[in-house]
Design a protein around this nucleic acid. Structure first.
Lengths: 194, 194
DNA sequence: ACCTGAACACCGTTCAAGT
DNA sequence: ACCTGAACACCGTTCAAGT
């Protein structure tokens, strides 16, 4: 006689992500998640392959939310403004969910197969805005430059690497201005040379 | 009657770093390190506070080596050339020791974090080259922009985030050119406006 | 001084047995 | 179908006892 499920995969992922954020990745144990969800650890394996699988699912959930935020930020029509809005949205997401953000960027390879499509969808608005700014041929290299900076800045910030004082917000805006201006200038230069 | 030590802290750190690189952070267990060094796990605690302490020591060792490489790369006297050489040296270090590089930049529990003093010493050659390029007042913000990109690019590369094809080496050089040119141009603009 | 085995408190995971 | 307790193989860490 089948017993009704006391939980569900979405609930497990949701609760797991909450534990990750409030207690850290180390505390995201099978026992801890099971307890928070009202079952015993072995029962978790009816919903999830193993702990790595659960972590991957949480990462996918977060990437999806980040993608939604980025797409929503890119609403202006002006590629330069969109790029700045997306960089700020990315940083805001990292400030809202620091542990989750760190997970997204540190566990990418294990997740890649399953989330390849999701990841492509997430990076799509960035690529489109970049392409509008620098042209199709340079778009990929330019996007990698922009994303590397945006992710690297926030990663350093979360890692506590900015220890020499100074205004971190100002440094972010400084870098953002520098990059978007340089990318836009690269476009102009190329157009002039034609 | 005292028994002679069968190992030493430097050897433990060295062997530990080798295990980290060849087998990954998860496999860097006290049992594994003890075995590789010829003692039992409990004896490790005569040399090291705990596992977090060992990880911090390994990270410090790596940061020291990275700092040496960066300082050695900045030998030309031309700040722009020095900055490019340091970015390439940073990337080369990451390719030589990917696991160790990730450890350096991932936030760790407080006790595992790299010594602040050591970190400042490592970033000193970068700050000096940047200051020569953009002036003292902008140096810190400019350095944060440059380092965020350099670290972020390599981090994405190591995480397998560059999945849309294209030439990653070319993207690195593209970003490096864009950034150094933009930083140098910022200096010029400020000078002109005086 | 340093090293050891024994012991403890965990954790991920499997599995046969329950409903 | 899902849940459970028991069990196993680990791991970090402590500690009294060895040399």
């Amino acid at each position: 006689m089948p017993t009704p499920a006391r939980t569900s995969l979405p609930q497990i992922v949701d609760v797991g992500r909450r534990i990750l954020e409030s207690e850290g990745l180390e505390q995201l144990t099978m026992v801890r998640v099971a307890q928070a969800v009202g079952i015993r650890a072995p029962s978790l394996y009816k919903h999830v392959g193993d702990r790595g699988d659960l972590i991957r699912l949480i990462g996918g959930d977060a990437v999806g939310e980040l993608g939604t935020r980025l797409a929503r930020a890119a609403g202006s029509g002006d590629p330069r403004q969109d790029l700045q809005a997306m960089a700020r949205a990315n940083r805001a997401f990292a400030h809202d969910y620091p542990e989750t953000y760190r997970l997204i960027w540190s566990r990418l390879p294990e997740r890649s197969r399953i989330d390849a499509e999701l990841n492509a969808r997430t990076s799509e608005p960035v690529l489109r805005a970049i392409a509008a700014l620098v042209g199709e041929e340079q778009a990929l290299m330019a996007a990698r430059t922009y994303v590397a900076w945006a992710q690297g800045f926030v990663n350093m910030e979360l890692s506590g690497a900015f220890r020499l004082g100074g205004d971190v917000d100002a440094a972010f805006e400084y870098g953002l201005d520098l990059l978007t201006a340089a990318l836009a200038a690269g476009r102009s230069r190329r157009q002039v040379s034609r």
